[in-house]
Write a protein that binds this DNA or RNA. Structure first.
Lengths: 225, 225
DNA sequence: TCTCTATGAATGAATG
DNA sequence: CATTCATTCATAGAGA
């Protein structure tokens, strides 16, 4: 069995669902509907995430750690010990921009380009050119390396199951999830980089029928036998 | 790379795809299942928005409207705890082997070596190559630091830092998303079966925004190299 | 539950 | 670029 990646735009979702791995299993209408909904919800999630990020960057919620470099120079000079190490931490906004550039760009930006990027990012927080340079270096190296993550089965030793189940408390906010989940089984997900667009393939299965999904905002992934 | 089925063996996936489950037209029941999932997704998104709104009352949320593409409410039965492992924990046996390799080895193993080690350790529990990699990195770094500390000055350890006290606070609201998506693209999730119904929680992310999704009808599977 | 600590993981920067 | 180092974050697990 071989899974292949199909790059492209939204229209591929239809092809993939209808003709892809699963064969033709849904009516056009169904696929249309599904497609719309998925697109809608991914957009929603995106918006939520954006909001969350921008808020996290600008507001001091108790309990939320703010990057050391976010604090304005004034309060820094006023008197807190600045003895802390000076390591650049990209703000969410900066990261977003960098990521975007990385996706379209082909390799490490030229020196000139770095200058530009740095000055642009400087609007969203302190940054230097070497920061940008390093970031791209690291970004590439790490996306290249990227180990395969194989998640093992629940092994004998690590499965007392029932006893450990109740003492496991989820973080605040996750509770509502319980309303939708009745026990969860293991799941595998894996992605790798390819091209400018990111796709993720999610393949799942159960007794009733297997199922797979492509998310357009994820990197491509594939699996084969 | 290959797909493996955790419970039930590989023939299951094959059978399901070829014989049945996926090869044929999606049944009404299956379509119904899909609809439910979408509804669940919708509800989750709404919950997210609510959470977000409540934690930021002073912000303008007028832009966010969550569409309900399906109105039939999903009345999911109250579920169980989600037992997702977020962090690899080496089994005693694995640790033993790692230590042994570390002692004789000359620093961080090569990529090839890591593969070998990982596959060897996989016999004793779930593990990934990056786990191995990280372990060696940490092992070396920490033994080094320990050495430095023991030989270095003693008074250097003065770190009153009042601000560290409150950073212990648990995540609030949407922050839990960040906990799951620390720049990783692969992840795993595992749970257990309960009753007749199975649910899968899919947590994904890319560098731009995190995302999650629920699948309700999958059997566990995982992938290895 | 709460706190504390060991440690897996992430990542900016440095070195080869 | 490829590796490695240094530092920090977050969590699992133990103890109170």
């Amino acid at each position: 069995m071989e899974w292949e990646i199909q790059h492209g735009g939204e229209e591929n979702l239809q092809n993939q669902i209808q003709n892809g791995v699963c064969g033709k299993v849904m009516s056009d209408e169904q696929v249309e509907e599904l497609k719309k909904q998925i697109v809608a919800y991914s957009a929603i999630s995106e918006q939520l995430a954006e909001l969350h990020k921008s808020m996290s960057a600008h507001h001091d919620f108790t309990g939320i750690r703010l990057g050391k470099l976010y604090c304005d120079p004034i309060s820094a000079s006023v008197g807190h010990k600045i003895t802390a190490r000076q390591r650049w931490t990209p703000s969410p906004l900066q990261l977003q921009i960098l990521e975007k550039i990385y996706e379209q760009g082909i390799g490490t930006p030229s020196k000139q380009k770095i200058k530009e990027i740095a000055s642009e990012l400087a609007q969203h927080g302190p940054i230097s050119e070497s920061n940008v340079y390093n970031w791209f270096q690291n970004r590439r190296a790490r996306s290249k390396r990227k180990f395969q993550v194989s998640t093992g089965s629940v092994n004998a030793e690590s499965e007392p199951d029932v006893s450990t189940k109740e003492k496991k408390t989820k973080p605040v906010g996750l509770d509502f999830i319980d309303n939708f989940s009745q026990g969860v089984e293991s799941f595998y997900f894996q992605g790798s980089e390819s091209g400018t667009k990111m796709w993720h393939l999610v393949l799942c299965q159960n007794h009733n029928f297997p199922f797979f999904f492509f998310f357009s905002f994820f990197k491509s992934s594939f699996c084969r036998d």
